[in-house]
């Protein structure tokens, strides 16, 4: 199978132009069908996907940290168990996505290298800190919620392994969102201090969550091509609107407010209006000047470097076993 051949490769493949392959690729896209690892694909399509899928994988992995921060301090055993399972799910998502990216010929080691060297990007949202327990609620409700809005359309992305990984991931993300909502609901209806904790946290996460959809359409240069390739289905602004329409009624159920005085139902549009976002702040965080960029990367780098001797031991042991079984077969 070409997929496994790709995985074994140490360098990224060079795409050779193939007119029949291109015709077939164009047909698949036109018919809104799936492109599989064995199909010929244009180099730019492959590169776009590798970038997107690996960034997505990195986000899952870095995203473990802000919530992992509260595993040892979760205020009830039930919440501790749910949080542990959630953070572990995110590790699983990272693993599925790295596998999907590998089918495009990029080895996992290279992706890891790019992440810890700071070369690869991941979602800026994880560069915000989690000072309170209520942040476990806000992340689930708003961050996993925004991720769902982004990711449900990706279940129909044209690249098969990516789309299939997304189906699996979306199911778990909707659990995460419900759990986050539940945390906030409990806090909001709890003591005065708990309610205040929830409101303060939602105030901090609201705008960064809206920015997860990326810059406004006018400033989003790569979107058009991705839409033509059926990788992206809706524009950034469309998805952002969908998200706002979802969370406004939910915030009312929660008994919490959203920190935007301009939120108002617009009868004519059939959508909620909302205020301008501070995109300067977004670009600051994107450039690595967010409150926790350095901490997140340092933590990943340290885990990777301090684990090197373990991975070397596992490799050496596997080699030893291989030699033993060869010897046994020869005898």
């Amino acid at each position: 199978m070409a997929a496994s051949a790709n995985m074994a490769r140490n360098t990224e493949p060079e795409t050779v132009e193939d007119p029949d392959g291109r015709a077939r690729f164009d047909e698949l896209i036109a018919a809104d069908q799936r492109v599989e690892p064995t199909d010929w694909m244009p180099e730019a399509y492959r590169k776009t996907l590798v970038r997107q899928v690996s960034q997505h994988a990195h986000s899952e992995i870095i995203g473990m940290q802000p919530e992992g921060n509260w595993i040892t301090r979760a205020p009830s055993l039930k919440r501790k168990a749910i949080l542990m399972a959630k953070v572990q799910d995110e590790a699983g998502h990272g693993l599925y996505l790295y596998s999907a990216a590998q089918t495009l010929g990029t080895p996992r080691d290279k992706m890891t290298e790019d992440l810890i060297s700071g070369k690869a990007k991941y979602s800026s949202i994880f560069n915000y800190p989690t000072p309170t327990w209520a942040d476990m609620g806000s992340i689930g409700w708003l961050v996993d919620g925004a991720a769902i809005c982004n990711q449900v359309p990706l279940c129909r992305a044209s690249y098969g392994p990516y789309a299939r990984a997304m189906v699996r991931i979306c199911k778990e993300e909707s659990f995460h969102q419900r759990q986050g909502f539940e945390i906030l609901l409990h806090l909001s209806r709890g003591t005065k201090e708990q309610h205040a904790m929830a409101q303060e946290s939602v105030n901090r996460w609201y705008a960064p969550a809206l920015m997860m959809f990326g810059p406004p359409d006018a400033d989003s240069p790569n979107s058009a091509q991705s839409m033509a390739w059926n990788i992206k289905r809706f524009s950034n602004d469309e998805l952002r609107q969908r998200f706002v329409d979802m969370i406004v009624p939910q915030s009312e159920v929660l008994g919490l407010t959203l920190p935007d005085p301009d939120i108002k139902w617009n009868e004519e549009r059939g959508h909620y209006d909302f205020g301008e976002l501070d995109w300067d702040e977004f670009y600051e965080v994107l450039k690595g000047r967010g409150p926790a960029n350095a901490i997140r990367l340092e933590r990943r780098r340290t885990a990777h470097e301090e684990g090197a001797w373990v991975r070397e031991a596992a490799a050496a042991y596997a080699e030893r076993r291989r030699q033993q079984s060869e010897k046994a077969q020869a005898a």
């Binding site: 992995i61 473990m64 940290q65 992992g68 595993i71 040892t72 501790k80 542990m84 953070v87 572990q88 590790a91 990272g94 693993l95 790295y98 933590r299 340290t302 885990a303 301090e306 684990g307 090197a308 373990v310 991975r311």
Partner: peptide, 13 residues
Amino acid sequence: GWWIARAPELEED
């Protein structure tokens, strides 16, 4: 629980 997001490889997380 401390090891989650600190393990030597993702599979170990």
